[in-house]
């Protein structure tokens, strides 16, 4: 399946992937200013940017074939869509036990405790379809959406 791959040698560490991720997961899709100023709670970015200058890179859920988070999920909220391969957390069923946080070898599951305790993670912007918005908006082509090489 297509995944998001970062080329750290070209990641400028600007954080725009996060800005667009937040926007994409807010109620004001496509409007960054509203997403930031009006959404409450403001969604967490599902993409993690790590920086240790000069190194920087962003990281999203790898949507593992053998997804530890899915197997470990105590509620069954975390599921891998058999058709698309995308691992999605059903936040209505998630109770925030953080077992997924404990087992994700990429550290790609985030805790959102603003309203309810739910685990949030990259959903490949599946709802919008097409190229995930972090990839689309990376100003330096540091993120690629492609099949594994």
């Amino acid at each position: 399946m297509k995944r998001v791959y970062v080329r750290e040698e070209y990641c400028a560490g600007c954080g725009l992937c996060q800005v667009h991720c937040i926007t994409a997961h807010s109620e004001y899709k496509g409007d960054i200013i509203k997403a930031y100023k009006k959404s409450f709670p403001r969604p967490l970015a599902r993409v993690i940017v790590e920086e240790k200058r000069p190194l920087s890179f962003s990281l999203q859920c790898r949507h593992c074939e053998e997804a530890e988070c899915v197997k470990a999920c105590i509620t069954g909220a975390m599921q891998k869509d058999p058709a698309t391969g995308i691992v999605i957390n059903d936040t209505a069923r998630c109770i925030g036990c953080w077992t997924c946080v404990l087992v994700c070898p990429y550290g790609a599951v985030r805790r959102d405790e603003t309203l309810h305790k739910v685990a949030v993670k990259c959903d490949m912007c599946a709802e919008a379809g097409g190229v995930p918005l972090c990839v689309e908006n990376c100003p330096n082509g540091a993120l690629e959406y492609r099949e594994e090489r």
């Binding site: 080329r7 040698e9 070209y10 990641c11 400028a12 560490g13 200058r53 000069p54 920087s56 330096n140 082509g141 540091a142």
Partner: peptide, 8 residues
């Protein structure tokens, strides 16, 4: 290197 990598 922090700046140079901004040019892919």
């Amino acid at each position: 290197p922090q700046l140079a990598k901004r040019l892919n």
